[in-house]
């Protein structure tokens, strides 16, 4: 099953009737087991795009859909069940009144799973993200990095057909961020969800993704789609340092003008 973003655009109209074109003519396909990162300067509409994929916002034009090549694996049943999309939000968005365990169970509750099954799955994913022993903690008792792990466990627990991440590491300090990048890579190696990852951090995008989608600003268009042809788990290896930096430099070259413009205008 592939995710297809077909000619999607989004125009916002403010109270005075002024139109802002946030996104225009976005075409993108995300295949099975593919990790796509979207980078762009602030105000390029990358979060808007992610919200539309998550079904939390409707596009002004175009369509977003899942496409299955050939016969579906599970027959009729697989067709009738809607594809599961999970989102990891920037500010974590854990529910402060739920413990880590209950937070991770949330998505499973909505899927209608029984208590025992929920508990078992939630514990497995909590262990996977390295939060074993913190099941009964409330979010405010955790550090930023641990909170984000819980957010990731909550998303992975529903075994999503598509995993969306909206700047999941940008609220973390620089050191925690580096650690979490590695953790994300390891988790992805285990689960291999097709993933759309929004970030403004170019290094992060090049480090994690199979393809980096570079968005331009006002209106947000795809400036370039750049496949990263480096071995996935050795990208911080000194041997690849030069190529890695070339990727980063050429992406920066594409968005530098826009980023400077964004800084002058302020985002939104």
């Amino acid at each position: 099953m592939r995710l297809v973003i077909d000619g999607v655009g989004k125009t916002f109209v403010d109270k005075n009737g002024r139109e802002t074109v946030a996104l225009e003519n976005i075409h993108l396909t995300v295949s099975e087991e593919e990790f796509v990162a979207i980078v762009g300067p602030s105000g390029c509409g990358k979060s808007t795009l992610l919200n539309m994929i998550a079904g939390l916002l409707s596009p002004t034009s175009g369509e977003i859909y899942f496409e299955t090549a050939g016969a579906p694996e599970g027959g009729e049943a697989a067709l009738s069940a809607p594809p599961k999309v999970a989102v990891v939000f920037q500010e974590v968005a854990l529910f402060p009144w739920r413990t880590v365990l209950k937070n991770v169970e949330f998505g499973l509750e909505e899927l209608g799973l029984g208590r025992r099954e929920r508990r078992e799955i939630a514990r497995r994913y909590i262990d996977m993200v390295g939060l074993g022993g913190f099941e009964q903690h409330y979010p405010h008792q955790l550090s930023g990095g641990m909170r984000q792990r819980a957010g990731i466990a909550r998303a992975l627990a529903i075994r999503p057909d598509l995993l969306l991440m909206d700047e999941p590491l940008s609220a973390l300090d620089a050191q925690t961020r580096l650690i979490m990048q590695d953790e994300l890579l390891k988790l992805w190696a285990k689960t291999r969800h097709k993933t759309v990852y929004v970030t403004h951090n170019i290094q992060e995008a090049v480090y994690l993704a199979d393809r980096v989608v570079v968005l331009s600003r006002r209106p947000g268009r795809i400036a370039e789609i750049m496949p990263i042809e480096l071995p996935r788990f050795e990208r911080h290896d000194p041997a690849h340092q030069r190529v890695f930096n070339e990727y980063v430099q050429s992406i920066w070259g594409l968005i530098r003008k826009d980023a400077e413009q964004a800084m002058v205008e302020g985002s939104e």
Binding site: V87, F95, G107, L111
Partner: peptide, 16 residues
């Protein structure tokens, strides 16, 4: 609104 978004993204309906 972020809690609401998170809940809806997991498929929560009005009642939930």
């Amino acid at each position: 609104p972020l809690w609401v978004k998170a809940a809806v993204s997991f498929g929560a309906g009005r009642g939930d």
